[in-house]
Amino acid sequence: MTGRKPKKFTAFLWHRRIGLLAIILVIILSITGIMLNHTESLKLDEKYVDSSLLLSWYGLQPSGEAVSYDVGDHVITVLDNLIFFNSYPVGKSEQTFHGAVKTEQLIALAFDTEIVLLTSDGELVERMPTGHSFSDIQRIGIKYQRPVIETSGPLYYVADEHILDWDAVTAENITWAKKITLGETKLKVLLESFRGRGLTQERVVLDLHSGRIFGEYGVYVMDAAAIALLWLSCSGLWVWWSRRRKLRKKRHFQKHHRKQH
């Protein structure tokens, strides 16, 4: 036993610990706070994010590849389940895309168990589920200006004039839909359309400031950082006040007691 009292967890000790713990979050809060105060002068709402990492984080970067088919004057593309007529989104399908052809009046798109019909202006006409009688579409082609379907079964099916019903057909004189690769410019326009208006820098800074960029619990982390800041203010005041009191006591002691010796 040394006779010394065990060391207490003083306000200063906690001030230091919490300060060290919250340092990164407080830096983020401070910098993003300043940036948000000057959004207009920094033009954060006019600048768009290019980083593919950030775009992926926000779900704005497609995870799959664009699958495109030429249908005369237009191109049909499916990208991450979104159907595009040229660069305009016209619908969604969670099934695999097997091609598109231009028929006499309409454009027919083939998915696993569904045919989607569009007008030549890209307007949706009808979604036709194939049902169990013929499904599992492999590819789509054209014969006598009518769509023809190849399934995993041995038969091929051709649509009637108005694409209402299907009949078995021989596999002769069918021109199958051919996949194309989009040029750089067309792909860029398509990606812009996929992302909508895009992601502004203001959105990212705002989400960093609120913690939402880190997901559901990020907000609570930033709440903790704000509480830590509150604690640091109070404990800092307490440390300053207690030190000042000790200093006063010391000066008082030196002034009134030591001089007597």
Partner: peptide, 10 residues
Amino acid sequence: GHNYKGLRVR
């Protein structure tokens, strides 16, 4: 309460 998607119904 919303537009019907499609131009024809079977």
